[in-house]
Design a protein around this nucleic acid. Sequence first.
DNA 1: CCCCAGGTAGGCT
DNA 2: AGCCTACATGGG
Length: 284
Amino acid sequence: MLYRKESDRIVVYDKEDFNPLHIVRCGQLFRYNESKDFIEIFAGKFRSILKRENDCVIIDTNEVDYFENYFDLSTDYAEVRKNLAKFGIEESLFFGKGLRILKQDPEETVFSFIVSANNNIPRIRGILERLCERYGELREGYRAFPKAEALKDASESELRAIGLGYRAPYLIETVKAICGGFDLNLYETDTDEARAKLMTLSGVGSKVADCILLFAYAKRDVFPVDTWVKRIYKDVIGDSDEKTDSMARKLRKKFGEISGYAQQYLFYYYRNKVLQTMTEEIVL
DNA sequence: CCCCAGGTAGGCT
DNA sequence: AGCCTACATGGG
């Protein structure tokens, strides 16, 4: 990946492997705004603006180092796609070319995906927006994602009013665990061990755990299975009423170390194909 | 009225 | 261990 760091921005030269629309729309993050000329991304307590300039993508931010890591600029996606092409998913790879799997803040990812359970993306976005508005630290013109400490005094009825529904107690329990010393530093922990640890948190089951491992800790050897992946699985493998965990195991075995990448390309392509929204507009 | 959404917890066998 | 069901909320 070819890019240059400056004091207040990163210039990405290879826009083939950095497509802002794909990055924000593929379902891994929920706090972003699209406008005609740029995309605004919120990550933890930081913000960056993505826009095109000639043949480059500009990442405008005061936190250059943070976003260099966040966008995982050291990973070569041409290589990733080359390896994935062996599995015969070229259509998905072509469609999603330019998406990147982010390295997001663990706390934010944990809370966000607890909210995501049995929920749809537009509503998840709304709930998290209200959560930030209500509990997030006010920064220059936006709200940071609230830390566990800031969520500690949130009552169940407040969270329900925001729209969390029955997930409100899950979030409260998990906030309590984190404030009580639950160690979220799992970067060096083995995938299965980290997975088991995350699943001790309330509201974190196998699928949510896999999303956290993939989107926060850069564990690419997991394959989160949600309702969309189940449909893909049934379409491709044909085996209906197979258990989700069993699907995840088999898919993980099939794609190995690049499972997470495969999952994102497949999820993104299939979901767009079915929904038939926004597809025409993806030009950036 | 129904079904669905990036599922999970708790209860049962 | 594995299987079943209730669960808030809003949109189609």
